[in-house]
Amino acid sequence: MKRAAAVALLAAALLAAGSSFAAPLAWRGISLSSAEWGEQQPFPGVHGKDYVYPSVASTAYYQAQGMNLMRVAFRWERLQPALMGELQPAELARLRKFVDGTTARGLHVLLDPHNYAAYGGVSIGQPGVPVAAFADFWRRLALQFKGNPRVQFGLVNEPRQLPTETWAEAAQAAVDAIRKTGASNLITLPGNGYTGAWSWFESTWYGTPNADVMGRVHDPLDHMVFEVHQYLDKDGSGTHAECVSPTIGVERLQRFTAWLKQNRRRAILGEVGGGANAVCEQAVAGALQHLQANADVWTGWLWWAGGPRWGDYFLSLEPDGGKDKPQLRWLRPYLKD
Protein backbone atom coordinates (compact mmCIF):
# COMPACT_ATOMS: atom_id res chain seq x y z
CA MET A 1 0.00 0.00 0.00
CA LYS A 2 1.30 3.46 -0.84
CA ARG A 3 2.30 5.60 2.12
CA ALA A 4 -0.30 8.30 1.43
CA ALA A 5 -3.11 5.77 1.37
CA ALA A 6 -1.87 4.12 4.53
CA VAL A 7 -1.73 7.46 6.35
CA ALA A 8 -5.25 8.30 5.23
CA LEU A 9 -6.60 4.97 6.45
CA LEU A 10 -4.88 5.34 9.82
CA ALA A 11 -6.22 8.86 10.25
CA ALA A 12 -9.75 7.77 9.38
CA ALA A 13 -9.56 4.91 11.86
CA LEU A 14 -8.34 7.21 14.62
CA LEU A 15 -11.09 9.72 13.97
CA ALA A 16 -13.81 7.09 13.84
CA ALA A 17 -12.67 5.67 17.16
CA GLY A 18 -12.76 9.03 18.91
CA SER A 19 -16.00 8.78 20.85
CA SER A 20 -15.36 5.33 22.28
CA PHE A 21 -11.58 5.10 22.43
CA ALA A 22 -11.12 5.72 26.16
CA ALA A 23 -12.44 7.69 29.09
CA PRO A 24 -11.58 11.40 29.12
CA LEU A 25 -8.43 12.38 30.96
CA ALA A 26 -8.56 14.09 34.35
CA TRP A 27 -7.89 17.57 32.96
CA ARG A 28 -9.57 19.02 29.87
CA GLY A 29 -9.53 22.73 29.34
CA ILE A 30 -8.40 25.89 27.60
CA SER A 31 -5.81 28.64 27.91
CA LEU A 32 -7.57 31.97 28.44
CA SER A 33 -5.32 34.65 27.02
CA SER A 34 -5.70 38.42 27.42
CA ALA A 35 -4.28 39.50 30.79
CA GLU A 36 -0.73 39.11 29.44
CA TRP A 37 -1.41 41.34 26.43
CA GLY A 38 -0.23 44.91 25.90
CA GLU A 39 3.52 44.34 25.86
CA GLN A 40 3.77 46.54 22.76
CA GLN A 41 2.30 49.50 24.64
CA PRO A 42 4.20 51.55 27.24
CA PHE A 43 4.48 48.87 29.88
CA PRO A 44 2.75 48.00 32.17
CA GLY A 45 -0.12 49.60 30.27
CA VAL A 46 -3.64 50.39 31.39
CA HIS A 47 -5.99 47.69 32.60
CA GLY A 48 -9.20 47.68 30.57
CA LYS A 49 -7.45 49.26 27.61
CA ASP A 50 -4.17 47.47 26.92
CA TYR A 51 -5.09 44.23 28.70
CA VAL A 52 -8.01 42.65 30.53
CA TYR A 53 -8.64 39.53 32.56
CA PRO A 54 -11.21 37.05 31.27
CA SER A 55 -14.50 37.24 33.11
CA VAL A 56 -15.67 34.54 35.48
CA ALA A 57 -18.95 34.45 33.54
CA SER A 58 -17.13 33.50 30.34
CA THR A 59 -15.94 30.24 31.89
CA ALA A 60 -19.52 28.96 32.06
CA TYR A 61 -19.46 28.34 28.30
CA TYR A 62 -16.41 26.10 28.54
CA GLN A 63 -17.66 24.36 31.66
CA ALA A 64 -20.90 23.50 29.84
CA GLN A 65 -18.83 21.79 27.12
CA GLY A 66 -17.18 19.52 29.71
CA MET A 67 -13.98 21.44 30.36
CA ASN A 68 -12.75 21.56 33.94
CA LEU A 69 -9.43 23.46 33.82
CA MET A 70 -8.90 27.12 32.89
CA ARG A 71 -5.31 28.27 32.34
CA VAL A 72 -5.15 32.00 32.98
CA ALA A 73 -2.23 34.02 31.61
CA PHE A 74 -0.84 37.18 33.22
CA ARG A 75 2.47 39.08 33.42
CA TRP A 76 5.01 38.69 36.21
CA GLU A 77 6.06 42.35 35.91
CA ARG A 78 2.53 43.61 36.46
CA LEU A 79 1.94 41.41 39.46
CA GLN A 80 5.35 42.14 41.01
CA PRO A 81 6.55 45.55 39.74
CA ALA A 82 9.86 45.31 41.62
CA LEU A 83 11.84 42.08 41.91
CA MET A 84 11.83 40.75 45.47
CA GLY A 85 9.08 43.29 46.23
CA GLU A 86 5.47 43.04 47.29
CA LEU A 87 2.77 41.93 44.86
CA GLN A 88 0.87 44.86 43.36
CA PRO A 89 -2.48 45.04 45.23
CA ALA A 90 -4.73 46.06 42.33
CA GLU A 91 -3.26 43.48 39.94
CA LEU A 92 -3.45 40.77 42.58
CA ALA A 93 -7.08 41.68 43.18
CA ARG A 94 -7.84 41.26 39.46
CA LEU A 95 -6.19 37.85 39.38
CA ARG A 96 -7.86 36.80 42.61
CA LYS A 97 -11.28 37.85 41.37
CA PHE A 98 -10.94 35.54 38.39
CA VAL A 99 -9.41 32.67 40.37
CA ASP A 100 -11.82 32.78 43.29
CA GLY A 101 -14.90 33.20 41.10
CA THR A 102 -13.88 30.45 38.69
CA THR A 103 -12.94 27.91 41.33
CA ALA A 104 -16.19 28.67 43.16
CA ARG A 105 -17.91 27.33 40.03
CA GLY A 106 -16.17 23.99 40.60
CA LEU A 107 -13.51 24.58 37.95
CA HIS A 108 -9.76 24.39 38.45
CA VAL A 109 -7.42 27.23 37.47
CA LEU A 110 -3.83 26.87 36.26
CA LEU A 111 -1.84 30.04 36.95
CA ASP A 112 0.30 31.00 33.96
CA PRO A 113 2.94 33.73 34.33
CA HIS A 114 3.27 34.25 30.58
CA ASN A 115 6.87 35.44 30.66
CA TYR A 116 9.10 32.95 28.80
CA ALA A 117 11.37 32.70 31.88
CA ALA A 118 12.25 36.40 31.69
CA TYR A 119 11.46 39.61 33.55
CA GLY A 120 11.43 42.87 31.64
CA GLY A 121 12.95 41.05 28.69
CA VAL A 122 15.92 39.80 30.72
CA SER A 123 16.19 36.03 31.14
CA ILE A 124 16.27 34.45 34.56
CA GLY A 125 19.87 33.89 35.61
CA GLN A 126 21.18 36.98 33.82
CA PRO A 127 22.47 40.00 35.76
CA GLY A 128 19.52 41.79 37.28
CA VAL A 129 17.16 38.79 37.31
CA PRO A 130 18.67 36.21 39.67
CA VAL A 131 17.21 32.77 40.22
CA ALA A 132 16.38 33.88 43.76
CA ALA A 133 13.99 36.52 42.36
CA PHE A 134 11.99 33.88 40.51
CA ALA A 135 11.81 31.76 43.66
CA ASP A 136 10.70 34.82 45.65
CA PHE A 137 7.92 35.53 43.16
CA TRP A 138 6.59 32.00 43.49
CA ARG A 139 6.88 32.08 47.29
CA ARG A 140 4.67 35.16 47.35
CA LEU A 141 2.20 33.78 44.82
CA ALA A 142 1.96 30.43 46.63
CA LEU A 143 1.19 32.19 49.90
CA GLN A 144 -1.75 33.89 48.21
CA PHE A 145 -3.33 30.77 46.72
CA LYS A 146 -2.14 27.78 48.73
CA GLY A 147 -5.45 27.60 50.59
CA ASN A 148 -7.36 26.79 47.40
CA PRO A 149 -6.84 23.19 46.26
CA ARG A 150 -8.44 23.98 42.90
CA VAL A 151 -5.52 26.27 41.98
CA GLN A 152 -2.56 24.82 40.08
CA PHE A 153 0.83 26.49 39.73
CA GLY A 154 2.29 26.66 36.21
CA LEU A 155 5.85 27.86 36.80
CA VAL A 156 6.13 29.97 33.63
CA ASN A 157 5.13 29.93 29.98
CA GLU A 158 7.60 28.51 27.43
CA PRO A 159 11.12 29.19 28.74
CA ARG A 160 13.52 30.32 26.02
CA GLN A 161 16.82 32.14 25.44
CA LEU A 162 18.55 30.72 28.50
CA PRO A 163 20.63 27.57 29.15
CA THR A 164 18.55 24.53 30.00
CA GLU A 165 20.67 24.02 33.11
CA THR A 166 19.82 27.54 34.30
CA TRP A 167 16.13 26.96 33.73
CA ALA A 168 16.26 23.67 35.66
CA GLU A 169 18.00 25.45 38.55
CA ALA A 170 15.36 28.19 38.56
CA ALA A 171 12.52 25.69 38.37
CA GLN A 172 13.90 23.71 41.30
CA ALA A 173 14.29 26.89 43.33
CA ALA A 174 10.67 27.81 42.61
CA VAL A 175 9.39 24.33 43.50
CA ASP A 176 11.33 24.42 46.77
CA ALA A 177 10.03 27.92 47.58
CA ILE A 178 6.44 26.85 46.90
CA ARG A 179 6.67 23.81 49.11
CA LYS A 180 8.32 25.74 51.96
CA THR A 181 5.14 27.83 52.21
CA GLY A 182 3.19 24.67 53.00
CA ALA A 183 1.43 24.74 49.62
CA SER A 184 0.51 21.30 48.29
CA ASN A 185 -1.03 22.52 45.01
CA LEU A 186 -0.21 20.76 41.76
CA ILE A 187 2.81 22.27 39.97
CA THR A 188 3.32 22.12 36.20
CA LEU A 189 6.92 22.22 34.97
CA PRO A 190 7.77 23.32 31.41
CA GLY A 191 11.01 22.57 29.61
CA ASN A 192 13.35 24.92 27.81
CA GLY A 193 13.09 25.92 24.14
CA TYR A 194 9.34 26.69 24.21
CA THR A 195 8.74 23.32 25.94
CA GLY A 196 7.85 21.54 22.70
CA ALA A 197 7.17 17.83 23.07
CA TRP A 198 8.71 17.25 19.64
CA SER A 199 11.90 19.13 20.56
CA TRP A 200 12.41 17.53 23.99
CA PHE A 201 15.42 15.69 22.60
CA GLU A 202 16.86 18.54 20.48
CA SER A 203 20.54 19.37 20.88
CA THR A 204 21.13 22.00 18.22
CA TRP A 205 19.18 25.21 18.85
CA TYR A 206 18.29 25.75 22.51
CA GLY A 207 21.21 24.12 24.32
CA THR A 208 21.32 20.91 26.32
CA PRO A 209 18.21 18.84 25.52
CA ASN A 210 15.38 18.89 28.05
CA ALA A 211 15.55 15.10 28.06
CA ASP A 212 19.03 15.28 29.60
CA VAL A 213 18.30 17.91 32.26
CA MET A 214 14.68 18.43 33.25
CA GLY A 215 14.26 15.02 34.84
CA ARG A 216 16.51 16.23 37.65
CA VAL A 217 13.89 18.68 38.89
CA HIS A 218 11.98 17.03 41.71
CA ASP A 219 9.08 17.80 43.99
CA PRO A 220 9.27 16.52 47.58
CA LEU A 221 5.49 15.98 47.50
CA ASP A 222 5.60 14.24 44.09
CA HIS A 223 2.70 16.45 43.01
CA MET A 224 4.23 17.90 39.86
CA VAL A 225 3.77 17.15 36.17
CA PHE A 226 5.67 18.30 33.10
CA GLU A 227 3.90 20.80 30.87
CA VAL A 228 4.66 20.52 27.17
CA HIS A 229 3.14 22.32 24.19
CA GLN A 230 2.62 20.87 20.76
CA TYR A 231 1.38 22.47 17.58
CA LEU A 232 0.83 20.59 14.37
CA ASP A 233 1.86 23.04 11.66
CA LYS A 234 5.06 22.87 9.63
CA ASP A 235 7.35 24.52 12.18
CA GLY A 236 5.45 23.65 15.37
CA SER A 237 4.81 27.32 16.10
CA GLY A 238 1.01 27.28 15.96
CA THR A 239 1.04 30.28 13.60
CA HIS A 240 -0.20 28.43 10.50
CA ALA A 241 -3.74 27.14 10.03
CA GLU A 242 -2.58 24.10 8.05
CA CYS A 243 -1.38 20.93 9.80
CA VAL A 244 1.41 18.79 8.32
CA SER A 245 -0.57 15.54 8.04
CA PRO A 246 -3.48 13.65 9.63
CA THR A 247 -1.06 11.71 11.84
CA ILE A 248 1.33 14.48 12.86
CA GLY A 249 -0.23 14.79 16.33
CA VAL A 250 0.67 11.23 17.23
CA GLU A 251 4.06 11.44 15.55
CA ARG A 252 5.14 14.52 17.50
CA LEU A 253 4.09 13.11 20.87
CA GLN A 254 5.28 9.51 20.73
CA ARG A 255 8.91 9.95 21.69
CA PHE A 256 8.12 12.23 24.62
CA THR A 257 5.52 9.74 25.84
CA ALA A 258 8.18 7.02 25.81
CA TRP A 259 10.50 9.32 27.81
CA LEU A 260 7.77 9.83 30.43
CA LYS A 261 7.31 6.11 30.81
CA GLN A 262 11.03 5.44 30.99
CA ASN A 263 11.49 8.11 33.65
CA ARG A 264 8.26 7.37 35.53
CA ARG A 265 7.02 10.94 35.17
CA ARG A 266 3.70 12.45 34.10
CA ALA A 267 2.72 15.40 31.92
CA ILE A 268 -0.06 17.65 30.69
CA LEU A 269 -0.30 18.92 27.12
CA GLY A 270 -0.54 22.58 28.07
CA GLU A 271 -1.16 23.95 24.57
CA VAL A 272 -2.46 22.24 21.45
CA GLY A 273 -4.40 23.57 18.49
CA GLY A 274 -5.03 23.45 14.77
CA GLY A 275 -6.89 25.38 12.07
CA ALA A 276 -10.45 24.58 11.08
CA ASN A 277 -9.77 22.07 8.28
CA ALA A 278 -10.05 18.31 7.78
CA VAL A 279 -6.33 17.54 8.12
CA CYS A 280 -6.06 19.37 11.44
CA GLU A 281 -9.25 17.72 12.67
CA GLN A 282 -7.69 14.30 12.19
CA ALA A 283 -4.32 15.40 13.56
CA VAL A 284 -5.87 16.78 16.74
CA ALA A 285 -8.04 13.69 17.17
CA GLY A 286 -4.98 11.49 16.83
CA ALA A 287 -3.07 13.52 19.42
CA LEU A 288 -5.88 13.41 21.99
CA GLN A 289 -6.43 9.70 21.43
CA HIS A 290 -2.72 9.16 21.96
CA LEU A 291 -2.98 10.93 25.32
CA GLN A 292 -5.97 8.84 26.35
CA ALA A 293 -4.24 5.63 25.30
CA ASN A 294 -1.32 6.58 27.53
CA ALA A 295 -3.26 7.82 30.53
CA ASP A 296 -0.67 6.28 32.84
CA VAL A 297 1.63 9.22 31.98
CA TRP A 298 -0.70 11.88 30.51
CA THR A 299 -2.99 13.80 32.88
CA GLY A 300 -4.80 16.02 30.40
CA TRP A 301 -4.70 18.77 27.79
CA LEU A 302 -5.57 22.42 27.17
CA TRP A 303 -6.62 23.95 23.87
CA TRP A 304 -4.96 27.17 22.75
CA ALA A 305 -6.79 29.51 23.02
CA GLY A 306 -9.75 31.41 24.41
CA GLY A 307 -10.21 34.88 25.81
CA PRO A 308 -12.25 38.01 25.18
CA ARG A 309 -10.21 39.85 22.54
CA TRP A 310 -9.18 37.32 19.91
CA GLY A 311 -11.65 38.36 17.21
CA ASP A 312 -11.27 36.05 14.19
CA TYR A 313 -8.04 34.39 15.38
CA PHE A 314 -8.04 30.96 13.74
CA LEU A 315 -7.32 29.04 16.96
CA SER A 316 -9.81 30.83 19.20
CA LEU A 317 -12.65 28.80 20.68
CA GLU A 318 -14.55 31.85 21.91
CA PRO A 319 -18.10 31.59 20.53
CA ASP A 320 -18.85 33.98 17.69
CA GLY A 321 -22.29 35.55 17.91
CA GLY A 322 -23.45 32.63 20.03
CA LYS A 323 -22.12 30.09 17.55
CA ASP A 324 -19.53 27.45 18.42
CA LYS A 325 -16.21 27.46 16.61
CA PRO A 326 -15.70 24.41 14.33
CA GLN A 327 -12.90 22.94 16.43
CA LEU A 328 -15.19 22.51 19.41
CA ARG A 329 -16.93 19.67 17.57
CA TRP A 330 -13.60 17.83 17.33
CA LEU A 331 -13.03 18.15 21.07
CA ARG A 332 -16.42 17.00 22.31
CA PRO A 333 -15.63 13.25 22.28
CA TYR A 334 -12.70 13.99 24.65
CA LEU A 335 -14.59 16.23 27.05
CA LYS A 336 -17.54 14.40 28.56
CA ASP A 337 -17.17 12.05 31.51
Results as ranks from 00 to 15, higher is better:
A8M: 01
L9P: 01
L9I: 04
L10S: 01
A11G: 10
S19G: 06
A26Q: 14
A26Y: 13
A26S: 11
W27H: 09
S33Y: 15
G38H: 11
P42C: 13
K49F: 11
G66T: 15
M70D: 00
Q80V: 12
Q80I: 10
A82P: 07
L92V: 03
R94Y: 07
K97A: 15
G101W: 09
T102E: 11
T103P: 15
V109F: 04
Y119I: 06
P130W: 07
R140D: 01
G147S: 04
V151W: 06
G154I: 01
E158C: 14
E158L: 11
Q161D: 03
E165N: 13
E165V: 13
V175K: 10
A183V: 03
S184T: 15
A197G: 10
T204L: 03
G207S: 09
A211E: 04
V213A: 11
P220A: 14
Q230G: 06
L232P: 07
K234L: 07
D235Y: 09
S237Q: 05
S245Y: 05
S245P: 14
A267Y: 08
G270D: 02
G270N: 03
N277R: 01
E281D: 15
Q282Y: 03
W301P: 01
W310M: 02
F314M: 07
D324E: 15
R332W: 07
L335E: 10
